[in-house]
Write a protein that binds this DNA or RNA. Structure first.
Lengths: 120, 120
DNA sequence: CCATTAATTCGAATATACATGAATTATGGA
DNA sequence: TCCATAATTCATGTATATTCGAATTAATGG
């Protein structure tokens, strides 16, 4: 993955509505969700949603298939994996054993408690 | 992790200079890098870098310690893990076996080839 | 062919993020 | 105390992103 692709993905997700769309699609899994269903469930105007789906799609984070009058959207999990791989590339100066334990704890299951806040 | 924290982290990383800073710190590992070294290695003006470090720090992605006249910065790997956990929460509608194989392939080692481009 | 539904595109007004130069704070040494 | 170095803060002009209403394209059924 190129840096420019990574920034496109991160920018796409760094948005109040788009992160909801992506997470909803992640939750929906391989069955996907139509644009109309997304607009209704998330209370987003169709044209605004369309713009945001375009941005997610351009970043490769979602895919879509036309289905009659509707368009069905799907999360692209592999794109997420590529993004994280880029961010963590050559982690810990060639001593991956230092951070691999963190990565191994990533799971789809309900989140374990995390320590996000800086202490200064 | 709250949605607002996730957006702060994604916004922080979605920037040409800040993603370089974060990746350099990830690569540096527990030894960290001083602000001055970051500015020199990445050719960023000190005041611009300081602003960007503030943004990364506010998002919890980096931490810092004063060291004499310098300030040493470190990547917060656990924050990255929390971010990904949030994005992947309740993946595949409660059937994590569908996406866990992707997550298990995340590694610090040199990146495996990925398929980022949408095919439409 | 016309009407309806689904989704997208377009143009414009507004808000936000960004880099920069100048000024400021903090630390250490002479 | 004075000076130099390291880093940060501040004010500002510019560029970019976001949303919205209106118009447009696509598919289906009568």
């Amino acid at each position: 993955m190129e840096k420019t692709d990574a920034i496109a993905s991160l920018s796409a997700l760094a948005h109040d509505a788009r992160i909801d769309v992506f997470r909803l699609l992640v939750n929906a899994g391989p069955e996907g969700v139509t644009a109309g269903q997304l607009a209704e469930r998330l209370s987003i105007r169709p044209n605004t949603l369309s713009n945001n789906l375009n941005i997610l799609s351009g970043a490769g984070l979602v895919r879509s298939l036309r289905e009659g009058r509707s368009v069905r959207y799907f999360a692209n999990i592999d794109a997420m994996r590529g993004l994280l791989a880029f961010l963590m590339e050559d982690c810990c100066g060639g001593r991956p054993e230092l951070c691999q334990p963190f990565l191994d704890r990533i799971t789809c299951a309900p989140t374990a408690p995390t320590d996000m806040e800086p202490d200064q």
